[in-house]
Design a protein around this nucleic acid. Structure first.
Lengths: 356, 356
DNA sequence: TTTGATCGTGAAAACGCTTTCATAACTGGG
DNA sequence: CCCAGTTATGAAAGCGTTTTCACGATCAAA
């Protein structure tokens, strides 16, 4: 005789007024005629419970609409399935694509993403542990410039942490970095196919920015190998903005230095600025000036001429960060790793006169 | 005799090996010689405890480095200080600026932000309550097209919810909407100052998109008022992409219909597409074709001619959403509101021949 | 002084879950 | 038929908070 009907009486369908108390594991246990332990097992490790019981309990769970209280659960397990991600107040494109990649991956792995764009202001930081330390199982933080306090905070909280854009393995942290070398070299060599080395320029962002540093270095190296010494004026630092690109180009145009030259920009905006200024001065791109950008943001394919640029797999960076973080969360003693993602030159119209 | 030195002995500075258990409220209570209740009060409502005691407890808290366990706290209070925000897989710009606005405001109000860009796939949704229901205190969800299941899910979870971009007051939900009417009217009238009504066009995104619908409607109204009937071909639907803009423009150019015309695009990308196609066909913008975009994304000021466009206060939308949500979280019985944010025409170069 | 209020504090009961440990009910090999 | 080994379950001990309630002490008014 199947006793499935046993909990027939105590069915309170909760059509009660006001804000009804949510159904707890106890309610389920009572209704199913089992202990809370069993209900818990049905939910978390079904193989530990007899199929018949499991089915019955599942039924009750469904009909009662039971949802485990995540806080109680987290209190016991010390895991919240939430990952924090702190990005500098970086520009739109960048930000969102990386975030999307991270979000998709997190979701895939059963985690949630807690964001914080401005985790870097000292004020906030001091106040009370800027990020939801204590809420999150791990933290992915992007560091584009030296920033001691942030990662120190993470270390102090002994929170699994993965660093984006900086190799901090020597500090014992997992990291995800973009291999600027590949793309930069590719781009530089690409320029060199149609421009003499002495006429090539690198226009970077802030001098402190890690990426700019690396790109400048590889640019100089590649140039040096191919055509001897690199003049100081061939590498410039400024900021990641269109205006800086325009400004730099205008100045160079003044010296008559851009006709027949090649420019590798620190990002796409700078590149667009350079193109803009050149065109304003009547210097045709790509015919008289070759320009290559960096990042392959949406902007690159929207402008005319379409911008040749070095593609960074932003979504992949985000996803890798999450993946690495989850690994570390699940095994705090895993070897610290550094994922290096490749960059790749995408040739469009701004650097090549060939009919595509 | 001040007994501040009392807890001198039991100071375990936790230089223990391995992963030390974090200090709990009990540890603090013991070390300070008070009950846990008092410690709790010191932390949450200091005015309830005698200044002397408070000071002493605070001292212990500092020296022990006590951090309340947020899960335990949330378990009791049923509040996590976390807000969810679900955005459709919308395009970069949009996404990130809104998010930033929301993040800043959330932070200001002492909340954290849990994001989810792809909360809308049915698969995920069914699986287990796509969003971290149970983790979050409230949910801000952006709905740009009819989407029953999502807000039904929220309603069922009886979770404080605010809807972005759709007025759902009649369903009893707070909402934040953008007043498309203002900007659309402004833009249309602006076009009408230099173009006859019969030569004005609206090129929208998807026909189902709420914003596109409203903009199309107001466009037609404004035109109708000023210059009689509006022909069906003056309003077109497609999608929010540059390609659609190009495609539409090319087709119109074929009919010779664009010379001397005015175009209001559904977003900036479409506008850029139109301009692109016109220029390719040798039709100068703005001289022979006036174009106005929508959204005022970064793109608008990067292209040439700089794009006249209708500005949407995205960051404000995000901030308002959070603000409204927090209000509702703190007072579930507050009247349901609908915040309406103004849009505003920004005249740049693509629609005006005057020397700026 | 007596008398209510007010104030500061602690004991203890939740909150909803996981998990250890023990128990009882079955296996099946000897 | 007995005993060791599974297997399925329940009782109960937490997890780290908040919060109610009660109790003694202090205080202002009578």
């Amino acid at each position: 005789m199947v006793c499935l009907a046993m909990p027939a009486h105590p069915n309170r369908v909760s059509s009660a007024p006001g804000h009804a108390r949510p159904v707890s594991i106890q309610d389920v246990a009572a209704a199913a005629g089992v202990s809370t332990a069993t209900v818990s097992r049905v939910v978390n490790s079904p193989d530990l419970v007899a199929p018949a019981t499991a089915a019955r309990v599942q039924g009750v769970i469904q009909s009662l609409g039971y949802k485990p209280n995540l806080f109680a659960k987290a209190l016991m397990t010390r895991k919240s399935q939430v990952l924090g991600i702190a990005l500098p107040d970086i520009h739109g494109e960048f930000y969102s694509e990386l975030l999307r990649g991270a979000d998709v991956e997190a979701r895939r792995l059963g985690y949630h993403l807690l964001v914080s764009s401005e985790a870097h202001t000292p004020a906030e930081q001091e106040r009370q542990g800027s990020l939801a330390f204590g809420l999150i199982d791990g933290l992915a933080v992007m560091i584009t410039e030296p920033n001691e306090s942030l990662w120190r905070e993470a270390r102090d909280a002994s929170l699994p942490t993965v660093v984006l854009d900086t190799d901090l393995r020597e500090r014992g942290m997992d990291s995800i970095v973009v291999d600027n070398a590949i793309g930069t070299r590719e781009a530089t060599e690409h320029l060199l196919t149609s421009v003499p080395g002495a006429r090539c320029y690198f226009v970077g962002g802030a001098r402190e920015n890690f990426d700019t540093q690396q790109r400048a270095k590889v640019f100089a190296q590649t140039l040096g190998l191919t055509s001897g010494e690199v003049r100081p004026d061939q590498v410039a630092y400024g900021q990641y903005s269109l205006e800086w690109g325009e400004q730099w180009a205008r100045q160079m145009l003044g010296h008559g230095a851009l006709d027949g030259a090649g420019v590798l920009a620190g990002n796409d905006e700078i590149a667009v600025g350079v193109i803009r200024a050149a065109q304003d001065a009547g210097l045709a791109v790509p015919e008289r000036l070759r320009v290559v950008g960096f990042d392959d943001t949406r902007l690159a394919s929207l402008v005319r001429p379409r911008l040749s640029t070095v593609r960074i797999p932003l979504a992949e960076v985000g996803a890798a960060a999450v993946r690495t973080l989850v690994r570390r969360v699940q095994d705090r003693d895993a070897a610290t790793t550094c994922v290096r993602l490749p960059t790749k030159l995408v040739v469009r119209e701004s650097s090549s006169v060939e009919r595509r």
